[in-house]
């Protein structure tokens, strides 16, 4: 198939940037979206132009590095899929494809389609852990049974790959789905319950400091999340946060 691409090009953080149009021919349906981008880049290099920078690594939908906003949706038109697992068979001959970076004040553009998502890391520094030393002197793994339903829910929350699609999709650029997934994973396990209150307070505080918007429950995040993280987690975070605010000593 032949495609017309409108790709966001921006030299660096200070540059204003803009959409640049490229024509790309003979693309096969079995190619992944990023393989299509590879071909575009090979073409640009052979023309002596600078290739398009974009984040990507594992290309199997798990590392969360890839991050494009394709035809108006983070990770493109295929539901439950990261950009690297999106295949060109989802497009038609003659299509125009808009390719933009994730947009949020808290995700500044570094170059072209590459954005800085370190705000997510900082939120996790604020409490995304259980304070247990890695000394190896912990108790036996089976000494605390965990109800399967909670273990499964914790796992579902933990499948978040931290790609930032929730922020990109939200009209308010809110990070609530991400933060709620992290808080939920630990809050649902007996091991994490001990610090659950401080964790919710601290992670939300950091989230606010990073400049994400407020959640208005539009559900766009859930619809675009490649891992299907549920809005139930946001309600849980609200609950955890409010009860922590009311019941902690500080």
């Amino acid at each position: 198939m032949d495609l017309k691409l409108k790709v966001w090009r921006q030299k660096n953080a200070e540059d204003k940037g803009g959409l640049v149009e490229y024509q790309l021919n003979d693309i096969e349906g079995h190619m992944s979206f990023l393989e299509m981008m590879d071909i575009l880049n090979e073409q640009l290099i052979s023309e002596g132009q600078e290739p398009v920078s974009f984040d990507h690594d594992c290309r199997e939908g798990i590392c969360g590095a890839c991050s494009m906003h394709i035809n108006g949706e983070p990770h493109g038109p295929d539901a439950g899929t990261t950009t690297c697992q999106l295949h060109m068979r989802k497009f038609n001959d003659g299509d125009t494809i808009f390719i933009e970076p994730f947009r949020a004040k808290a995700f500044p553009v570094i170059k072209d389609l590459v954005v800085d998502r370190s705000a997510f890391d900082r939120i996790q520094h604020a409490g995304g852990y259980i304070s247990v030393n890695t000394s190896g002197n912990t108790q036996d793994a089976n000494s605390i049974p965990v109800p399967k339903v909670n273990a499964d829910k914790a796992f579902d929350a933990a499948t978040c790959i931290g790609c930032g699609a929730c922020v990109a999709a939200c009209k308010n650029a809110s990070a609530m789905l991400f933060v709620s997934a992290k808080v939920s994973q630990f809050a649902l396990l007996p091991q994490g319950e001990v610090e659950a209150k401080d964790r919710a307070l601290n992670m939300v505080k950091q989230m606010d400091a990073e400049g994400f918007g407020n959640c208005t429950n539009t559900g766009a995040c859930e619809a675009e999340c490649p891992k299907g993280i549920s809005l139930e987690n946001i309600a849980r975070l609200n609950r955890e946060y409010l009860s922590a605010s009311v019941t902690t000593d500080h």
Binding site: L19, G72, R103, A169, K171, G219, A220, E224
Partner: peptide
């Protein structure tokens, strides 16, 4: 107003998931 500030630069194209009302 705050939410608008969280995305200073918008998208050239956006599918806008979420119901019409919620947005």
């Amino acid at each position: 107003y705050q939410n608008k500030k969280a995305r200073p630069q918008g998208y050239a194209m956006s599918k806008n998931q979420g119901s019409l009302a919620s947005r």
